[in-house]
Design a protein around this nucleic acid. Structure first.
Lengths: 205, 205
DNA sequence: TGAGAATACGAGCAACAACTCGTATTCGCA
DNA sequence: TGCGAATACGAGTTGTTGCTCGTATTCTCA
């Protein structure tokens, strides 16, 4: 069989820039329309180029989404790093812990509204779920690690399940936070934290 | 302008049955493929009829979805009735209250896996969100009513927000419950209840 | 029982989306 | 400065989808 990334074709700086512009445009259109409804022509138009030019850089619509997913994944990894960076995280006060984990993740989602549009929607090719897999696992792993310290009485499977629930809560409420008007956002974040706290408190200590 | 439901055309019993069969098929296909990806021909095939016959009963793909939404709405109304029926709901023990509200709603969603596929997906025509609107408002209203009794100290706007959060939690976790294997489902429901309880407890009393 | 309405069919139409291709322009570099 | 590669174009090809239409069959009821 052939390699997937057979010959990544030599590119000029101009081309790299174009690719980035196309991904910017794609993020915006995907965010607004969803994956299925966005046309490659619409992405090209938003990027200010012709349909043919888009295919100079990406083999297919899915390839565009894939590249965008990769880019988001990298940024998300940074956001996770920041969120889980403090070494003494697990030893902190519960409210403080939640603040320090949630705030950077919320900030990332607010800054990248296209992210959820790509990953949280059920209407995309399975390949993209695959792309989101590693980052999702990493997030779960980090939460589990914290639970291992904060809730030592949980069995391994309970811990896994609880981590999943926590991540699920976060992901369910994030769209509302992102969509909220500037002046409402803080209140929404407070609710999100209340929910996490309410679930975590009984497990804690 | 013409009326939307101009002449609802006289139907034979056979026709009524066909319509119902088409909706059954549509529910199955929508549930599996999502709204955008399901083709009207696929619905017709699943119903064992020709594409033309489908259009004898429904003017468009959206009309099929609309009719299906109406049918779900009616069933959902019943489920809500059951969930919120006991007159002394608001006066019960918190765990008991949660059980009595959550269990029937979960049962409904498990019995109708197509429901979420239609309403919880972001890829459908705005008309359907409209169809879901009344039932959603009713649910929010019921939850608010309970909060009025259980958490009298909340301001009106806080109450509204809290109700929204509760409904949101439920809707976010329901897909996991529905998708879970039979033997895992109870555990998932327990987690759902834990989350609700954790959020409600501080508001209570 | 027979006429008209309802139901059923399925090939095919119009619209649209992903993608191609021949050609023209711009860039990197010797 | 000039040549090959990269970039850019956009009309057109191919395939699919929602939906139509002419026609055939079945049902209802006087």
């Amino acid at each position: 069989m052939e390699s997937e990334e057979a010959r990544p074709r030599r590119r000029q700086a101009r081309g790299e820039r174009r690719m980035s512009e196309i991904l910017d445009a794609a993020a915006a259109v995907f965010a607004e329309q969803g994956y299925e409804k966005t046309t490659t022509n619409a992405i090209a138009a938003a990027a200010g180029i012709s349909p043919g030019s888009l295919y100079q850089f990406f083999r297919s619509k899915e390839a565009v989404a894939q590249a965008l997913a990769d880019r988001f994944t990298a940024q998300m990894r940074d956001a996770h790093g920041e969120a889980f960076a403090p070494a003494d995280l697990a030893a902190r006060d519960l409210d403080d812990l939640i603040d320090r984990v949630v705030d950077p993740l919320v900030a990332f989602n607010v800054a990248n509204p296209g992210f959820k549009a790509l990953f949280a929607r059920p209407d995309m090719p399975p390949g993209l779920a695959t792309a989101a897999g590693p980052i999702q696992s990493a997030l779960l792993g980090r939460v589990e690690a914290i639970l291992t310290v904060r809730a030592p009485r949980l069995s391994s499977s309970e811990r896994t399940r609880s981590a999943r629930v926590l991540v699920q809560i976060f992901q369910a409420m994030t769209p509302v936070v992102v969509a909220a008007a500037e002046e409402e956002r803080e209140a929404e974040v407070r609710e999100l934290k209340k929910v996490l706290r309410g679930y975590l408190a009984p497990l804690d200590g």
